[in-house]
Design a protein around this nucleic acid. Structure first.
Length: 276
DNA sequence: CAAGTTACCTGACGGC
DNA sequence: TGCCGTCAGGTAACTT
């Protein structure tokens, strides 16, 4: 489900309801996510502790506790978080429920179970950039994500640019939808080999990624099938899709038919006239 | 090495 | 109505 904008929307949505709250109980469906859920550790590090911060790095949510420990949550393709009164019956695929001291529950729902939950003890939360995020590229809104950085990293590489910008080692948080949309905005074909892209075009792409991601965050993310924010509201960026899911339809700019191809095993959409 | 493919899992949808 | 194949917002572990 979520790319960077959706994770950011969830992060901002849950933060005011979670910071300052103490976890009083945790329930687990018993089902494994991407990795087994470290349930005993989760209970030990969280129950009786207060949440002091909620943040995002790449597509991961970071929940910091007053014990110094940290919960790192990835939502995979179909994961979501929301608050519910405990008397509400848990939904199918609610795999974790965190009861709070204000009698609400934070629930983690994930039908495909591609998401993950990690618990870091206090001494493991220092230098996350050298440990957990050692192989994760810069945030797209950071200064490190520059045309110079991309141009240097692309030297000698044969990779298609769409596969390149979706690689988490290159830049964090750009998934399948926003990769296609950003390349359309930048006027670059998704199949272009990265070694052939000029620094000027990398500049266009960096700007396009900034604009697309920011617009999507402002729209509350994209809701394709089931994305909803912490208040159970849908995002509406999907009405702004210019190429994603529009194969066969006319390009918004030139009326040429939008094409769909597969790159790196992922559906990729582009305008064969506007993108070069 | 880089680059391409497969696996993980459930649900929705289209064709028959 | 249902059965089957395909596809889906991600990522890591394979193979080539």
């Amino acid at each position: 489900m979520p790319e960077l904008p959706e994770v950011e929307v969830i992060c901002r949505g849950i933060r005011p309801h979670l910071v300052g709250r103490t976890i009083t109980a945790i329930y687990h469906s018993g089902k494994q996510l991407r990795w087994p859920v470290p349930f005993d550790l989760l209970c030990h590090e969280m129950i009786g502790h207060q949440v002091i911060a909620v943040s995002r790095r790449a597509k991961y949510l970071q929940i910091s506790l007053d014990s110094g420990s940290m919960l790192i949550i990835h939502l995979g393709m179909t994961g979501n978080l929301g608050f519910f009164p405990p008397k509400n019956e848990p939904a199918k695929h609610d795999h974790l429920r965190f009861t709070l001291d204000n009698c609400m529950e934070l629930r983690y729902n994930d039908s495909r179970r591609f998401g993950s939950i990690q618990v870091l003890k206090s001494r493991e939360t220092a230098n996350l950039e050298e440990t957990v995020f050692r192989t994760t590229g810069p945030e797209p809104f950071s200064n490190a994500f520059s045309p110079e950085y991309l141009h240097e990293l692309a030297k000698g590489k044969q990779q298609a640019v769409k596969v390149f910008i979706m690689a988490t080692q290159v830049v964090a948080g750009v998934g399948n939808i926003y990769a296609s949309e950003s390349l359309f905005r930048a006027g670059i074909l998704p199949t272009r080999k990265v070694r052939t892209i000029s620094k000027k075009d990398w500049g266009r792409l960096v700007s396009a990624i900034h604009e697309i991601l920011q617009h999507a965050i402002d729209c509350g993310g994209s809701t394709i099938s089931n994305f909803i924010n912490a208040r159970q509201e849908k995002g509406y960026f999907q009405v702004n899709f210019k190429v994603y899911g529009r194969q066969g339809e006319p390009c918004i700019t030139c009326q040429e038919k939008i094409e769909k191809i597969s790159l790196g095993g992922r559906a990729s959409y582009f305008c064969p006239r506007c993108q070069k």
